[in-house]
Nucleic acid binder design. Structure first.
Lengths: 226, 226
DNA sequence: GTCTATATTCAGATAGAC
DNA sequence: GTCTATCTGAATATAGAC
């Protein structure tokens, strides 16, 4: 058997994952990419049709596992709970912990893919946001539904907001491990500039749960009081 | 007096703020920008030297007020406290509340600038991250120091991490108001797709404080226990 | 300060030989 | 499937007339 095809495809996907992570989608040229992957310039278009097609392939390669695993875990927990609501910590752990676990497993992309996800969620290009939204829609719907049941005293609107906040905290936590260095300072230097996925998880989870279960805001309408 | 100069400069800055917000830095061309601003293509280079110079001017116009106000509030609170540590909620309110307040004031850029900040913190271009880090360094150092005193039982490292998480949650909360729509769904539709700065603030603050004051993780070293 | 015209570079994509 | 050579368009930046 000839695996030259897969070799080339995989080399392109690996290089794209790394370069999109480091320089963003618009900041990565096909010329640099094909040079780094040691393949011909025309190979990307042959295998993936276009640069857009390449980006989608980069993500699909990982998201199939990630979101499949998230759904599998949720199904399993719900089967075990036998109709009872899940605990919020279980749900958060399954959703975010599964992602962070990928950072420890090189065959699933490791920290490179983690950082790529963290960064790409804020890419401005319309097609990227539309693509990710569609890839995520099923799993997000299922997890939101689980949170509704787990936190019946919290409005659905508030849960949706807090889901968004959790995604943001996670995304920055990851991206900030080597990109954004605004907080910076000696506390996050050397050692922790490249924390392991395990350390990230240990630090992030309490924060997310603390936020998710925080006291509800007193809503007084949207306009400020005269 | 002739204010043609300022007119042109301001029109360019306004258009840049809006377009960098909507399409990102790399995704915004000077041709589109000068067309929208109704100025000549060469005007940007004349007034700002380069596209990089323009981005820095766009931010400086707003950050002077923002970070000045943050420092002023912190000084004021510390003077009043008379040597006693501040409460965490005061600190968080001053840092994040000041930013969110800008969203209500059109003369400070309104929601457009808020969304721009949310998005730009994750721009991959090196010069942007370096520029923002240097613009933020003083105010972040001062606020971290205030948090150290306010939360003496929490390690400095943990506080730095949680500062980063809070920045992320805030950033997504803002960017997600019109960009990233991963959580989406009917709960965040229509009404809340463009929440007021006030609503954003009311929802975000409890989450940030809940995360900041969450129970500390049990650290068991960085390697996972075989 | 503002404009036109253009220099220069680089992007993504593809035709067609092998 | 892979390669070279090239098309086509768009980007930032600037020279120089007004």
């Amino acid at each position: 058997m000839n695996d030259t095809i897969n070799d080339t495809r995989e080399r392109i996907l690996d290089a794209a994952e790394r370069l999109f992570m480091a320089h963003g989608y618009e900041g990565t040229s096909m010329r640099l990419l094909t040079t780094e992957a040691a393949v011909n310039l025309a190979a990307v278009n042959y295998h993936f049709g276009s640069k857009e097609g390449l980006l989608q392939a980069v993500f699909r390669r990982r998201l199939v596992w990630l979101n499949g695993e998230r759904l599998r875990l949720l199904n399993e927990m719900e089967a075990k709970a036998n109709g009872a609501p899940l605990r919020p910590s279980q749900i958060v752990e399954a959703f975010f912990g599964t992602l962070l676990t990928m950072g420890e497993r090189e065959e699933l992309g490791g920290m490179t893919f983690l950082r790529l996800i963290g960064r790409t969620l804020t890419e401005p290009a319309d097609f990227i946001r539309a693509f990710l939204a569609s890839e995520y829609s099923e799993v997000v719907d299922r997890y939101k539904a689980a949170l509704y049941r787990a936190l019946p005293e919290v409005t659905r609107e508030e849960i949706a907001w807090r889901f968004q906040f959790m995604l943001g905290a996670m995304s920055y936590a990851i991206a900030g491990t080597d990109a954004l260095r605004i907080v910076g300072g000696p506390e996050l230097a050397s050692d922790t500039a490249h924390p392991t996925a395990h350390e990230l998880k240990v630090r992030l989870m309490p924060f997310l749960l603390g936020g998710l279960r925080a006291p509800l805001p007193e809503m007084d309408g949207k306009a400020s009081p005269h």
